[in-house]
Amino acid sequence: MATTTSRPASDDLPKTPRDLLPVFIAPIIALAALPLVGSPTTWVTLTVAALAMGMMIFVIASGLTLIFGLMDVLNFGHGAFIAIGAYMAMTVLAPLSGWVQSDALTLNLAALFLAVLAAMIGTGVLGWAFERVIVRPVYGQHLKQILITMGGLIVAEQLIHVVWGGDQKPMPLPGGLRGAITIGDFALEKFRLLAVAVGLTVFIAMQLVLNRTKVGLLIRAGVENREMVEALGYRIRQLFVGVFVVGSALAGLGGTMWALYRETLTAAIGGDVMVLVFIVIIIGGLGSVGGCFLGAILVALMANYTGYLVPKIAVASNILLMVAILMWRPQGLYPVARR
């Protein structure tokens, strides 16, 4: 009895138990798919493709889930940032076609870097304006938020038609990123590896910011209890705007990657991805970055395996996955925002 009450002072606070159960779903799905797919080379290709797709979805979805967690705003207009980011990147890449077409990887990457930078800055600024004009008057009113951000999406999509025209645009991959690296029997497409690297970087950076910096601490505290953070004297308003801008910029990054992945671009690109993004954040638990990461991988694995095995039900399989997970945990894998 005495041992439990007299803890040494140096001891840390009792840690919240880590909930690792959901982490095992991804490997289970991957292993279950192996006998169904049959050949290990195809399986590796599919898995890498799934990881790349998952990372892109994660980049897009992470911003949205944070915005929801922190501000209780579900931005249905997020899809517009995906499309606008991709179009901006395309605009920057057009005059750089010399760099894009050359086989030198450094020039390719430099062009891509500039394009992504432009897309992120552009969508970031746009996000700031969107927050100010569209979202700010309707904080705290879910119904109006959904309607108004949907209206924003309609207007943004139409403006894309006005500025860039409605027809489908090509978005060629840089020469150095085409093709695949072969290791033994396994062929790994270069762009997919790049996408995985970018996604992982974003995830790690986000985890570091959220867990190791003061801003991150405030964001996490704001997600848990907004009023308390305000009462302690922090201007949560500015934090909100900052997260909104970063979330929009990430959508721009994700949109650029997604357009490069598909190598074509239409104004409806945002809508196609948003369906997957919504499934991901529902699976992950609204507001949770870790859940979002896991959810993105699960959805992408499911989409790629069923896309290979039974192509006709690829999207429906994701709905089934979502239903199954919601039956298990009605609030998603890692619910954070309790509202």
Binding site: L74, F76, H142, L143, I146, M274, V275, F278, I279, I281, I282, L286, N318, I319, M322, P330, Q331, R339
Partner: peptide
């Protein structure tokens, strides 16, 4: 769960 969940799930 919540109205906002419903919006997203129906969309999907």
């Amino acid at each position: 769960v919540r109205a906002i969940f419903y919006a997203m799930i129906t969309l999907a």
